[in-house]
């Protein structure tokens, strides 16, 4: 293991920022969810790298990553169901045009 910890952290930061750019810049609601997936993966890389480099015997980092997996799966399922439901009613997936609840 001759790789410094900071390499993993910088890679995770770059992945997170690319995901952030995707979330903020895309029009399509599904593409926004894709960006969120990238951000979650960046966070998971951080968690696992800290687990391996700082405390490999106790397992807290991996448990946290498993919970993040579960939350990501739930988030995608509900998010895509919402998008499909909105698409059926108002025939659009563009986030700007979904302004039903805008005051």
């Amino acid at each position: 293991m001759s790789i410094p910890l900071s390499w993993y952290l910088i890679l995770a930061a770059a992945l997170f920022c690319i995901g952030l750019f995707g979330v903020l810049s895309r029009k399509n609601a599904i593409a926004i969810l894709l960006g969120i997936e990238l951000m979650l993966n960046g966070v998971n890389i951080n968690l696992v790298a800290f687990w391996r480099y700082l405390d490999p015997v106790r397992i807290a980092g991996q448990v946290f990553a498993v919970i993040v997996f579960a939350v990501a799966a739930a988030e995608v399922a509900v998010g895509l169901a919402l998008i499909i439901s909105v698409y059926r009613r108002s025939n659009t997936v563009v986030a700007d045009e979904i302004d039903l609840m805008k005051w």
Binding site: L9, C17, L20, L24, S25
Partner: peptide, 26 residues
Amino acid sequence: AASLGVLVLAGLVSLIIGQPAFNRTA
């Protein structure tokens, strides 16, 4: 969005590089 992403990345990278504890290997 692009400039915000670059700013966040620059901030995180400078934070990580400034931390000598992160140079450790496993």
